[in-house]
């Protein structure tokens, strides 16, 4: 139990992942689902970046008089992976929001269950 408190960054990251996951699964509103997806991704990026942090060292930014001794800086690789992840998350959010707009204009509801009910009603009547 003390390990959960001494690694508080990772604990909060997993809690954010769980909160985002539950919002994605249980909320019926599409806009809230998309926000839950983003929160879930933020939790994962926090976990990844906290793997690279070393207590007491500086950011890996060099200048003219900075030394290139690697023991003065934190691990820079996880930061690069998080950048890729953030870009992917933005494009995914953009596509899902455009799908939501199209669905709302067609069915006038933001509730995914009702949309599928309307679709199956239309299919059973026509076709």
């Amino acid at each position: 139990m003390e390990k959960l408190f001494s690694n508080y960054m990772e604990t909060v990251a997993i809690l954010l992942f769980a909160i985002g996951f539950l919002i994605l699964l249980f909320n019926r509103n599409l806009i809230k689902k998309i926000m839950g997806l983003n929160i879930m991704d933020s939790g994962m990026y926090l976990l990844l970046a906290s793997l690279g942090y070393i207590d007491g060292r500086l950011a890996p930014v060099g200048g003219i008089n900075q030394s290139s001794d690697p023991s003065l800086y934190i691990n820079p690789i996880p930061a690069g992976l998080v950048l890729t992840g953030i870009v992917v998350s933005v494009s995914v959010t953009a596509i899902m929001l455009s799908l939501t707009v199209r669905l709302y204009k067609r069915y006038h509801t933001l509730n995914l269950d009702e949309i599928f009910k309307l679709i199956h009603q239309n299919e059973d009547e026509g076709n």
Binding site: F17, F21, L24, L30, K33, L37, M40, D41, M44, L47, L48, L51, P78, L81, G85, V92, I95, M96, L99, T100, R102, L103, R106, Y107, L112, I115, F116, I119, N122, E123
Partner: peptide, 29 residues
């Protein structure tokens, strides 16, 4: 309309899977 709802549902399932996959990769790293 049918396509777009199918695309949305497909995307939600896929992103769930991607999220779990990324979490596994992070633990391996």
């Amino acid at each position: 309309g049918r396509q777009i709802a199918a695309a949305l549902r497909y995307m939600l399932f896929n992103l769930l899977g991607s999220g779990l996959f990324l979490l596994g990769c992070i633990i391996i790293y």
